[in-house]
């Protein structure tokens, strides 16, 4: 074959080599791909640590452990909660994130809004949903201007014990 065929090929090879060389120096050392290969996971490896070190808010883990931790100081309240009713709700859902409580935050902000209760206790006409097992009220009719906690004990919501 004559050289006029080869010459452009050398140019192309040269360009590819130049790009690869440039890439070698330009891509930072901490870039790489993992188990999922170049297509799915070419990334800055240091970034995984960044995500691992995001600040925690909630205590965890599992309702039982959380209740045990809270019971160390607030045992009387934790004992009251009924296991089959509001006992299934993690303390932090109403009392707020409490990772380093009692150090930080020193005091937890308790959510006593009607809205908090209405998340589950709004009457919705869904007979096929699990929602049907939860007693519901119409928020526009049921003691409109009063707070739920004025009458109901959120830790032991049993009406007989009121």
């Amino acid at each position: 074959m004559k050289s006029h065929v080869w010459r452009p090929l050398y140019v192309v090879i040269g360009i590819v080599a130049a790009i690869l060389l440039f890439r070698e120096f330009y891509v930072p050392d901490n870039f790489g791909s993992g188990e999922y290969g170049f297509m799915y996971s070419f990334h800055n490896k240091d970034n995984e640590e960044v995500w691992k070190n995001q600040p925690l808010m909630y205590r965890d883990t599992g309702k039982q452990k959380m209740h045990e931790y809270c019971a160390e100081c607030h045992g009387d309240v934790v004992d009251v909660r009924t296991e089959d009713l509001h006992g299934i709700i993690p303390c932090e859902n109403c009392h707020g994130p409490a990772l380093d409580h009692p150090n930080d935050p020193e005091l937890l902000v308790i959510i006593r809004d009607r809205d908090q209760c209405l998340r589950c206790h709004t009457l919705l006409p869904y007979t096929t949903s699990e929602r049907k097992r939860i007693p519901g009220i119409d928020p526009t009719e049921h003691n409109v201007d009063e707070a739920c906690v004025d009458c109901h004990d959120p830790h032991n919501p049993r009406l007989e014990d009121m």
Binding site: E35, Y40, N47, W51
Partner: peptide, 13 residues
Amino acid sequence: YKTDDGVVLVDRS
């Protein structure tokens, strides 16, 4: 990217 333990993350930087 996808981490080796199967979570997709975004590098904010």
